[in-house]
């Protein structure tokens, strides 16, 4: 990682010098905002970015589209999603984009790392080696400090695998974005929305599991007369969605903002047009880079923590409903859910 940082810094210094020798304002050079926005945007074109010059095109993966996808002609070419009908028009664009590839790369790296590090002598009770110890430390941290402290001793351990996966997956995507020539998948709203959707589903499942299907639906109606459900149910559903929405925006904004600030600091050299600016902005950019490393961990942590908190609140809502005379609904729901009787018994 240190090597990568040094490389990164060198790259920017080199860029600064190049700006003097190459000059600027030739017209076909991309402007700084263009460059930044292009860098953080998602495309299905793969290119190797060359500082201050046109990127080297690495080729594109042909788009994959499912459904009725007649192209909508626009002035700006066929850039998804502006040039194509959206999901509402019945077209699902499953194109493999830059961020999809980054996500897969992060997933592969994650699975590889975790499998290598967790592959230890299972007969020994104590882990041996840095990797195994590190993983176990994190596993224990997430179990004890997140799951149990936010969900509870009884239900917490059940959600530990989910929280662990979310934490490491986000962390790897965040860190991968800090490697030069890579992109931050978590800086894409669709990716964070997908992750938040996972938390949303798990939260709802936790609510149903704890309150029973009847109790869950009852909670959804807000406890008002059935004639008012037409207003109340959307209100409650919006309330449920607001939490994962906050998760989505938080992760997306944090990951994107850091990158934009980083690039903008470097871009300052070109905007001000003097290499001396590099003396200030490169150390600043380096500091921001270090901050970004920290943020990569913090955001993964925060996402996981909030997920645990939301799951815990859904579980608590279920418990709270038990206490208010929905015992019949509760029992009924559990019989539908099948393998969760142990939970009901704990209450009785």
């Amino acid at each position: 990682m240190r090597k990568a940082m040094v490389l990164f810094a060198c790259l920017f210094v080199a860029t600064a010098w190049a700006s003097e020798s190459g000059g600027h304002g030739e017209g076909n050079e991309p402007s700084v905002p263009d460059y930044i926005l292009h860098h953080v945007a998602d495309t299905n074109d793969f290119e190797l970015e060359v500082p201050l010059s046109h990127p080297i095109h690495l080729g594109a993966i042909p788009p994959i589209r499912i459904g009725s996808c007649a192209p909508v002609m626009t002035d700006h070419g066929l850039q998804a999603p502006t040039g194509w009908p959206g999901l509402m028009a019945g077209c699902l664009d499953l194109s493999i984009t830059k961020h999809t590839v980054m996500m897969w790369l992060a997933a592969l790296l994650l699975i590889g790392t975790i499998l290598i590090w967790s592959n230890r002598d299972k007969t020994k009770m104590v882990p041996r080696g840095t990797g195994a110890n590190l993983i176990e430390m994190l596993v224990l941290f997430i179990r004890d400090e997140m799951a149990i402290k936010n969900i509870g001793k009884e239900d917490g351990p059940r959600y530990v695998p989910y929280l662990l996966t979310a934490f490491f997956f986000i962390l790897f995507m965040n860190l991968l974005g800090l490697v030069p020539w890579m992109a931050t998948a978590t800086g894409n709203l669709a990716v964070t929305a997908g992750l938040a959707l996972c938390t949303f589903f798990v939260t709802q499942a936790a609510g149903i599991r704890s309150a029973g299907l009847g109790g869950y639906l009852k909670h959804l109606t807000g406890g008002v007369h059935w004639t008012l459900w037409i207003i109340m149910v959307p209100v409650e559903i919006l309330g449920l969605i607001s939490k994962p929405f906050a998760l989505t925006m938080r992760l997306f904004a944090n990951m994107l903002a850091g990158h934009i600030v980083l690039f903008f600091l470097i871009g300052l050299i070109f905007i001000l047009g003097h290499p001396a600016v590099a003396a200030v902005s490169v150390p600043f950019a380096f500091a921001i880079y270090l901050l970004e490393l920290f943020v990569a961990f913090v955001q993964a942590y925060v996402f996981t923590l909030l997920s645990a908190l939301f799951i815990g609140m859904a579980v608590a809502t279920g418990h709270h409903h038990d206490d208010h005379g929905h015992a019949d609904d509760h029992g009924h729901g559990h019989s539908e859910l099948g393998p969760s009787h142990d939970h009901g018994k704990a209450h009785a």
């Binding site: 926005l37 953080v40 945007a41 998602d42 994959i64 850039q79 998804a80 999603p81 502006t82 959206g86 999901l87 699902l92 664009d93 499953l94 194109s95 493999i96 984009t97 961020h99 999809t100 996500m103 894409n188 709203l189 669709a190 990716v191 929305a193 997908g194 992750l195 959707l197 996972c198 994107l256």
Partner: peptide, 14 residues
């Protein structure tokens, strides 16, 4: 395009 959500990517993320 930064703040637009591509459903395909949500799908791939899931």
């Amino acid at each position: 395009s930064l703040v637009s959500v591509q459903p395909g990517l949500i799908f791939w993320t899931l």
